[in-house]
Design a protein around this nucleic acid. Structure first.
Lengths: 188, 188
DNA sequence: GCATGACTAGACCAATCGGTCTAGTCTCGT
DNA sequence: ACGAGACTAGACCGATTGGTCTAGTCATGC
């Protein structure tokens, strides 16, 4: 599969993976270029602004990837809570398979990058797309729009936080318990 | 105040601030040394392992700082929910005052650092200290230990996630709404 | 069959990276 | 008074950083 990918796509995919693992500043162009098997000239042909452009493209790619996981999780769900739970478990599974280290691809890639507004705005946009996607599933599954909006935002906040804790502990259970405290597992 | 600080403390404090703003790899030693007004020799005298040692010390310092905020918030609280709410609002206030950009000092400093186990373990330890501190306040305020433990962890997960979202949006309201979805603002 | 633009290839660059090392200063105990 | 160790000071180092630039390859239209 990798062999048929265009130079541009190989660059984006490998960059996305490396940025997710070690952050924007934690990965050098040389390493990205080497793992992608692409010479430096090609990078600056496809991304005239270099590393920053590549990071945004990588974040976008990762975002689309994650949206597919969201749709998979909610596609087979009978109600919102089941969809959300499936999503958390899917992400936990990915986390386990990745060796208990991968965090949110967006915060890794765009937050530790240059603190310019372009990166920050792009991160905000992607988070909103994710929240909107889950909200749409909520509405489709019968939730009132306002309720769907707050639940979706709460779910993503929980996922972000749990992702961090799971990473620190190298243990996916915080991710798996996100539905419990977003929806409540026991009476308050 | 700054003038009376020891070289070591000046290094730690300035490093903590810079790491929190731009992450471990995002800040060079030169910049830390310049803002702290400390020559390179002193750094390697106080921290023989250089940047990595300094980052751990900075994270520890930031952790103690945050623990003080936790104790302040819960010290005056009549019940757990009020303490937690005060904590979230205090952090939101700090976030606002910082220009809507500061994130969690630990994830900034230790997560984008060298992906070695020392950093990761230290991050996990500090998170656990925070969770334990809030749990203790919960127990003191009458919660059953098990309930205090899960609530505390949920609170910190919510704070972590909300911190991220607040940063992306440059808006502290996610931080202020953490209590709502940790304790529930409306019936499920 | 040849000109053209898209793309690849990598040598090369100044700047910066984290880190080492030696020299010098300051403050003690004696 | 002086020796010792803690600490400061910054020159210096090789490696690596992101980025530029020129040369070359390749497919396509004419």
């Amino acid at each position: 599969m990798t062999t048929t990918l265009s130079t541009r796509d190989r660059l984006i995919i490998h960059a996305a993976q490396l940025f997710q693992q070690r952050g924007y500043h934690g990965v050098g162009l040389t390493e990205i270029l080497e793992t992608a098997g692409v010479p430096k000239g090609s990078l600056y042909h496809h991304f005239p602004n270099g590393k920053a452009d590549l990071a945004v493209a990588a974040a976008d790619w990762a975002s689309v990837d994650l949206l597919r996981i969201v749709d998979d999780a909610f596609g087979e769900a009978v109600d919102f809570r089941h969809g959300a739970t499936t999503l958390c478990f899917k992400l936990a599974k990915l986390f386990d398979l990745s060796g208990h280290w991968l965090g949110c691809p967006i915060s890794s890639t765009l937050f530790e990058g240059p603190a310019n507004d372009l990166f920050r705005t792009e991160a905000a946009r992607i988070f909103d797309v994710w929240i909107e996607a889950v909200k749409a599933h909520g509405v489709r599954l019968g939730l009132p729009p306002a309720k769907a909006a707050t639940s979706s935002e709460a779910l993503w906040i929980g996922l972000q936080g749990a992702w961090t804790l799971s990473r620190a502990r190298r243990d996916s259970s915080p991710l798996r318990h996100v539905p419990d405290f977003v929806f409540g597992s026991d009476p308050q």
